[in-house]
Computed example of a mutant assay.
Amino acid sequence: MNPALKGILYSSIAGMATALGGIPFLLWRREVSRKTLDVLLGFAAGVMLAATAFSLVVPSINLGGPLQFIVGFTLGAVFVHIMDKFTPHEHLIKGYEGPLSHSKMAKIWLFVIAIAIHNFPEGMAVGVGAFTKEAIVIAVAIGVQNIPEGTAVAASLTGAGYKRGRTFWITFLTGAIEIIGGLIGALLIAIARPLLPYAMAFAGGAMLYVISDEIIPETHSGGFELLSTYALVIGFVVMTLLDNLLG
Rank of each mutant, 00 (worst) to 15 (best):
G247S: 13
A135M: 14
G46M: 04
G159T: 04
Y198Q: 04
R164Y: 06
I142M: 11
F202N: 05
G21F: 02
F111G: 08
L173C: 08
P3G: 14
E90T: 12
L37I: 11
I70N: 00
L41V: 12
L241T: 10
G129A: 07
I117F: 03
S11M: 09
L110T: 00
I177S: 07
F69H: 00
L20G: 12
E134K: 06
P194Y: 03
N62W: 06
M105D: 13
L9R: 00
G165R: 09
L226E: 15
S221V: 07
G204M: 01
F69T: 07
Y230V: 15
V237P: 09
M1R: 12
E178M: 12
F25E: 02
A190M: 04
I93W: 01
L92H: 02
I147E: 05
P88W: 01
A125L: 10
A154H: 05
F43W: 07
N146F: 05
S221N: 09
I115F: 07
I115P: 05
E218P: 01
T36L: 15
H102M: 13
A176H: 03
S156I: 02
P66E: 14
A203T: 02
K104F: 13
T240S: 12
L26S: 09
G175Y: 00
H102K: 13
G161M: 11
I115G: 09
G143S: 06
T158G: 08
F111D: 03
L227S: 13
G235P: 08
M83E: 07
M16A: 14
G235R: 01
K104H: 09
G7F: 12
F69E: 02
K133R: 11
S12V: 10
L227I: 06
L26H: 01
S156Q: 10
R29K: 15
F111M: 15
M1L: 14
A51F: 12
V47I: 06
T171M: 09
M124S: 11
G161P: 02
H102A: 12
G161L: 12
S156R: 11
G143C: 05
A190T: 09
G143F: 06
P66C: 14
E214P: 03
L92D: 01
I93G: 05
G235Y: 03
S212Y: 12
F168S: 00
A4M: 15
L5A: 13
F86M: 11
G72W: 02
I184H: 03
P217N: 00
L56H: 04
T151I: 15
E31Q: 12
L187Y: 01
Y230L: 14
